[in-house]
Design a protein around this nucleic acid. Structure first.
Length: 111
DNA sequence: GAGTTGACGACTT
DNA sequence: CAAGTCGCCAACT
């Protein structure tokens, strides 16, 4: 069944559930999975999200500072910012303004 | 099978 | 206050 508890699968399932207009952090996802220090793995998982059978809104995942550190992994450096802007999220200098306001806690879905 | 990498985070200097 | 270093864990070469 869908009990593929692979690290990647967990990451994808969480990211996919991020609502439009919201964002989360790598650390939050990692913590949600169980290893808060595995934030790097979250980024690694998103790196191969293109190979996943389901679309993963990786642009809604940013680092702890609300900085779009992963923008360079998109087709163009502006893609990530453009996607967030299209979701009513304000970006300035590759950083989310009022990031705390847009933050979506993955724990809410695990409840 | 071993070493290097990586879209982070927190601590140390 | 800013920059540098370490740790963490799985995938990639």
């Amino acid at each position: 069944m869908e009990n593929e508890d692979s690290f990647f699968e967990k990451v994808y399932k969480i990211v996919i559930q991020i609502p439009v207009g919201k964002v989360t952090t790598y650390g939050a996802i990692a913590s949600c999975i169980g290893s808060k220090q595995s934030a790097r793995m979250v980024g690694w998982a998103l790196n191969k999200c293109s190979f996943y059978h389901t679309y993963v809104p990786a642009h809604r995942v940013v680092n702890r500072n609300g900085l779009l550190t992963g923008k360079r992994h998109f087709d163009n450096f502006e893609t990530m910012k453009e996607l967030l802007i299209s979701e009513n999220i304000i970006i300035e200098n590759d950083q989310i303004i009022d990031f705390e306001n847009y933050f979506w806690n993955p724990y809410k879905e695990l409840f």
